[in-house]
Write a protein that binds this DNA or RNA. Structure first.
Length: 855
RNA sequence: GCGGAAGUGGCGGAAUUGGCAGACGCGCUAGCCUCAGGAGCUAGUGGCCGCAAGGCCAUCGGGGUUCGAGUCCCCGCUUCCGCACCA
C-alpha cells in the first residue's frame, strides 16, 4: 500500500512525455485532425488560476480527442508585445526584451508543471522578428490592396499610456488597459479597412452555430448595421449668404416615413457647415466658441453617460424636401459628427431626443404617424415622442400608408426626385492601428519627399526594432528618437527619406497567430497554405469573453484578408468558441492590487497538478464564473486518493495476464452485471459531456459515481474495499476471487483510468502502469461504450395519481405500456388513492412513468 | 433606453427529449476504525407535521397550458453582462 503522493508523479510523467515527444504532431491527411487552441498569453510573469482554468479546459479536450483517434494540434505561444513591458522599462530600466523573455520562461515552467499537453516545439512569441516580419509583410499586402491606409483623423488618446487607442479599446470612455479617460487628438494614423467587411462579418455571424450567442450578439451590436436613407435638405436661398458647392445638408434617417414631421435640422458640432455658417454669422467668434464647447463636451459625455441636450440656432434655414417648408438649422451637442452624415432631421413628434430638444427650445412639433391613421389631437399635450410604427397622416400623398410601406415608398420617391437614396450605416469604424510606442511591430513604411509613402521592399523585411538603452516615456514615439532608425534611403529613388516611427497595435499580432502555429518556422511565407488547409480552422477555441469584440472580430477580419490574398480557403477561423468564466476570490476578480491572487504554484505544491486540474474542472461548467475555495481543492485531492487506494487495492488481483473481457463471461451475477452497466453508462456520460457538451463538471461527477459504486461492490467481494473494516477478512484467506469479478473490475477500473487521464493525467498514468501497462495513456484508445451492456434490465417506474407520485413499480425494462397500466392499477398504494373514484385518464410513457387521473 | 444571460438546499452545482427536483462535491451530524492522517470507512443531511407508516410544502414572485412544468407561454421582480443621444 502506497499513499497518493502527487508531487513525485507529476515530475516523473512530465519528463516522460517530454522525452518521448508525446505531444508533437505532423500533418497527416490520412487522419482526421483536431485543432485545439486556448487564447495565447500575455507574458505578465505569473499565470493565475483564471488563465490556468482556460488551459486545463483545452487540455482535457486535446487529450480526450487524441485518445479518440484524432491528430491533435495543441500549441501555445506568447502575445509578447505590449505596453506593460515598456512601462516597466521606463520605471525600472529593464529592457522589454529582457523582461519579456524572462517572464515567458517562468510562465512556461508553470504550464509545464500543470502537465498541459502542448506541442512546445511550435511555441512562438510575437516579439520574435521571425514572427513580426510577417505582420509587416501582411501590412504591405494590405496597403497594396487599399486595406491599409493613412489619414489624419480625430483619434482616442490615452494620456497615461501615451498612445492612440482603437474604438474597440475604449471602454466606458476610458482606456481598456488602464481606465484613464481618453482624450481626442488629431493625428496622422494608419487604419485597416475593416468596414469593407462589415456586412460579411455581420451576416456570417448566423453561420457561427457553435459560438456562444452572447458573443455573436455583442459582435452584431458592435457592427451596428442600420438601414435607412440619406436625404438632402436644400439650404434656403437667403439674400447675400449663398455659398457655392454647399447647397444642401444631407441627413441620415431610419425613419423617412416621419419626414413630414421634420420641423428642424440639426448639425453635429463637427459638421463642415458649422464653420461655414460661423463665418457669415453676426458673431463668428461666439458661434465658433459655442460649437467648440460642444465638441469638448462630447468626451465628457462618453465618460459620464448622459449630458443635457443643448443647442443654438444658426440663423439659417433649410427646405424640407417633402413639405417644401423652410425649417430652422440648429447645432446640437448630441449629434455625432462621425456617424451617418453628421446631421439629422429633427422629428420631435416621433423621436424622443428631438422631442426633448423641441420642448426645450420651443420648436414646433407635428404628428405625422398615428396608430390607426386617424388624425391626432394637439401635439401640445404630448409627454413623450411616439416612436412606434403606425399609419401616416399629414403627409400629403403618403397619407394612409403604414410606416413599413412608407419607408419603401418614400425612399423610392426620394431617389426619383434626386434628393436621396436608401443606404446602410454601420457603427463599426475602421481600425486605427498606429501606436506611438516602442514595444511592438514597426510599421514597414518609408516617407520620401519625392515618392511619398513607399513600402519597405519585401527582401528588406523584417524592419527590426532598434535596441534602445534608455526608456524615458517622454517626447515622441520612442523610435522617432533613434536617428539611425529614422533616416533611410528611399527604396524607389534612393534619396533621403524617413521611416514611419509608430508601431502596430498588438491586436494585429494576435489576429493571425493561430495560422502561424500550423507552420511556425516558415521563413519564406507567413505559413504554408497547405499546412493551414490541413489544420485550420481551429476546431475548439477557448478564452475569456473580454475578447468578444476585440480579438475575435479582428481575427475574423484577418481570416477574410488572408482568404482574399489566396492564402486560406475558409472565411471563419474558429469553428467552436468557448468563453470560459473567470475565477473569483472573495467575490472579486483576482488582481495583484487586491492582493487576492491564487498562485497555481502554491496549489501545485500543496495538492499536485491533478487535484488542481480536477477541481477547476469539477467546480462549475466552463463558461460560468467560479469562486475559488481551498476546501474544494481538498475534495478533489481526496477523490484522487480514493481512486488511488481502490486501484492499489485491486492492482494485484486484476493486473495479471490472461484476464479476458467480461463479454466472454457467461455467468455474471446480478451485482456484476450492475457494475458493468454502471461502467458503460459512465463511459457514455463522460464521452458526451466532454465531446459534445463541454460540460466537464458533470463528466467528473459521473466518474465519482462510478468510484462510489466500485467501492460498494468491492465490499461484496473477497478482495474487499480499501479502508473498510472488513477488509482482508481472515475467514476467506487464501480463497481466490471469482474470475467473473476480476473481469468486471478490470474492465471498470481500466475504463476509469482512461476517462480520468484527460483530467488527472499524472495519477492516471501511474496507476495504469501499476496495472501492468507499458504504453502511455496519451495514445491509449478511449473506452468503447457498449449500449447493450449499459441497457438496464430492470427499471423503476413512478406511478402518479393526479400528478403526485404514489408508488413505484420495479419492472423489466421492456415491459409494455398495457402491462405497465395493468400493474399500476393493481398496485396497492395506487389503489389507496384511486379507491371509490373514477379513473378519467391513464397516460403511460413507456420506460418512464405512469400517470393516472381520477375524479 | 436597446439587446443578451441567469435566478434551484447552509455553499458550488445536477436534472441530456415536458416525466421520480436536489446527482456529484463542499460543509455539517452520528457511528466505526486507529498506520493519529491532509486520515479512512459507513450512515444521515431541502422545509414543516408525525413515534412511525406516511402526508403536506418547495426550483425568484404571480398567472396560464398540460395527465404531468425547474424545463413551455404571459405579466412582474432581482442580479450579472454588452451597447448606449448611432438619428
Amino acid at each position: 500500500m502506497s499513499d497518493y503522493r502527487p508531487q513525485d508523479l507529476d515530475k516523473k510523467w512530465q519528463q516522460r512525455w517530454s522525452a518521448s515527444r508525446a505531444f508533437e504532431v505532423t500533418a497527416d491527411p490520412a487522419r482526421p485532425k483536431f485543432y485545439c487552441l486556448e487564447m495565447f498569453a500575455y507574458p505578465s510573469g505569473h499565470a493565475h488560476v483564471g488563465h490556468v482554468r482556460n488551459y486545463i479546459i483545452g487540455d482535457v479536450m486535446a487529450r480526450m480527442k487524441r485518445m479518440r483517434g484524432y491528430n491533435v494540434l495543441h500549441p501555445f505561444g506568447w502575445d509578447a508585445f505590449g505596453l506593460p513591458a515598456e512601462n516597466a522599462a521606463i520605471k525600472g530600466g529593464i529592457h522589454p526584451e529582457v523582461s519579456t523573455r524572462s517572464n515567458i520562461a517562468h510562465m512556461k515552467g508553470q504550464l509545464q508543471r500543470l502537465g498541459i499537453s502542448y506541442a512546445w516545439e511550435r511555441e512562438l512569441a510575437t516579439c520574435d522578428p521571425e514572427y513580426y516580419k510577417w505582420n509587416q509583410w501582411l501590412f504591405i499586402r494590405m496597403f497594396e490592396k487599399g486595406l491599409a491606409y493613412r489619414r489624419r483623423s480625430s483619434v482616442n488618446w490615452c494620456p497615461s499610456c501615451q498612445t492612440v487607442l482603437a474604438n474597440e479599446q475604449v471602454v466606458d470612455g476610458g482606456c481598456w488597459r488602464c481606465g484613464t479617460p481618453v482624450e481626442t487628438r488629431d493625428l496622422e494614423q494608419w487604419f485597416f479597412r475593416i468596414t469593407a467587411y462589415a456586412d460579411e462579418l455581420l451576416d456570417a455571424t448566423t453561420q457561427l452555430t457553435a459560438w456562444p450567442e452572447k458573443v455573436l450578439t455583442m459582435q452584431q451590436n458592435w457592427i451596428g448595421r442600420s438601414e435607412g436613407a440619406r436625404v438632402k435638405f436644400p439650404l434656403e436661398r437667403g439674400t447675400g449668404n449663398t455659398e457655392p458647392g454647399t447647397d444642401s445638408i444631407e441627413v441620415f434617417t431610419t425613419r423617412i416615413d416621419t419626414i413630414f414631421g421634420a420641423t428642424f435640422v440639426l448639425l453635429g458640432p463637427e459638421h463642415p457647415l458649422v464653420a461655414t455658417f460661423a463665418e457669415t454669422s453676426s458673431d463668428p467668434a461666439g458661434f465658433r466658441r459655442k460649437a467648440q464647447d460642444f465638441r469638448l463636451q462630447d468626451k465628457a459625455a462618453r465618460v459620464s453617460g448622459e449630458i443635457e441636450k443643448q443647442g443654438f440656432d444658426t440663423g439659417r434655414r433649410a427646405i424640407n424636401p417633402f413639405t417644401k417648408e423652410p425649417v430652422p438649422i440648429w447645432v446640437a451637442n448630441f449629434v455625432l459628427g462621425d456617424y451617418g452624415t453628421g446631421a439629422v432631421m429633427g422629428v420631435p413628434a416621433h423621436d424622443q431626443r428631438d422631442f426633448e430638444f423641441a420642448r426645450k427650445f420651443g420648436l414646433p412639433i407635428r404628428i405625422v404617424v398615428t396608430p390607426d391613421g386617424e388624425p391626432a389631437g394637439g401635439a401640445d399635450a404630448m409627454k413623450e415622442s411616439a416612436s412606434n410604427y403606425g399609419t401616416l397622416v399629414n403627409s400629403g400623398e403618403f397619407d394612409g400608408l403604414t410606416s413599413e410601406d412608407a419607408l419603401k415608398r418614400m425612399t423610392a420617391v426620394a431617389k426619383e426626385r434626386g434628393i436621396g437614396e436608401g443606404t446602410v450605416q454601420y457603427r463599426l469604424k475602421d481600425w486605427g492601428i498606429s501606436r506611438q510606442r516602442y514595444w511592438g511591430t514597426p510599421i514597414p513604411m518609408i516617407y520620401c519627399e519625392k515618392d511619398g509613402i513607399v513600402p519597405v521592399p519585401d527582401d528588406q523585411l523584417p524592419v527590426e526594432l532598434p535596441r534602445i538603452a534608455q526608456f524615458t516615456g517622454r517626447g515622441d514615439s520612442p523610435l522617432a528618437q533613434v536617428p539611425e532608425f529614422v533616416n533611410v534611403r528611399c527604396p524607389k529613388c534612393g534619396g533621403p527619406a524617413r521611416r514611419e516611427t509608430d508601431t502596430m497595435d498588438t491586436f494585429v499580432d494576435s489576429s493571425w497567430y493561430f495560422y502561424r502555429f500550423a507552420d511556425p518556422r516558415n521563413d519564406r511565407m507567413p505559413f504554408d497554405p497547405a499546412a493551414v488547409k490541413y489544420w485550420l480552422p481551429v476546431d475548439f477555441y477557448s478564452g475569456g469573453v473580454e475578447h468578444a469584440i476585440l480579438h475575435l472580430i479582428y481575427s475574423r477580419f484577418f481570416a477574410r484578408v488572408f482568404r482574399d490574398l489566396g492564402l486560406v480557403e475558409h472565411s471563419e477561423p474558429f469553428t467552436q468558441l468557448l468563453t470560459q468564466g473567470m475565477v473569483l476570490k472573495d467575490g472579486n476578480v483576482m488582481s495583484k492590487s487586491k492582493g487576492n491572487v491564487v498562485d497555481p504554484d502554491t496549489m501545485l505544491q500543496k495538492s499536485g497538478a491533478d487535484a488542481l486540474r480536477l477541481y477547476v474542472m469539477f467546480v462549475a461548467p466552463p463558461e460560468k464564473e467560479v469562486e475559488w475555495t481551498d476546501a474544494g481543492l481538498d475534495g478533489s485531492f481526496r477523490f484522487l486518493a480514493r481512486v488511488w487506494r481502490l486501484v492499489d487495492h485491486w492492482a494485484e488481483t486484476i493486473g495479471g495476464d490472461g484476464i479476458g473481457s467480461p463479454d466472454d463471461c457467461p455467468g455474471l451475477s446480478a451485482d456484476e452485471r450492475a457494475v458493468r452497466r454502471k461502467t458503460h453508462d459512465t463511459i457514455r456520460r463522460v464521452t458526451v459531456d466532454i465531446e459534445q457538451r463541454q460540460q466537464l463538471n458533470t463528466a467528473v461527477s459521473a466518474m465519482m459515481e462510478l468510484v462510489n459504486e466500485l467501492y460498494a461492490f468491492s465490499e461484496q467481494t473477497l478482495t474487499g474495499a480499501p479502508g473498510h473494516r472488513d477488509d482482508d477478512d481472515p475467514a476467506h484467506a487464501g480463497e481466490a476471487e471469482r474470475a467473473e469479478t476480476i473481469c468486471v473490475m478490470r474492465e471498470a477500473i481500466e475504463a476509469l483510468m482512461l476517462m480520468l487521464s484527460p483530467f488527472a493525467p499524472h495519477a492516471a498514468e501511474e496507476m495504469w502502469e501499476k496495472l501492468g501497462h507499458e504504453t502511455s495513456l496519451v495514445v491509449a484508445p478511449w473506452p468503447e461504450f457498449k449500449a447493450a451492456v449499459a441497457r438496464a434490465e430492470e427499471i423503476v417506474i413512478p406511478v402518479q395519481v393526479n400528478g403526485k407520485v404514489r408508488s413505484r413499480l420495479t419492472v423489466p425494462a421492456e415491459t409494455s405500456e398495457s402491462e405497465l397500466e395493468r400493474l399500476a392499477r393493481a398496485d396497492a398504494a395506487v389503489q389507496a388513492h384511486t379507491a371509490g373514484k373514477t379513473v378519467k385518464k391513464v397516460v403511460v410513457a413507456k420506460g418512464r412513468l405512469v400517470s393516472i387521473v381520477v375524479q
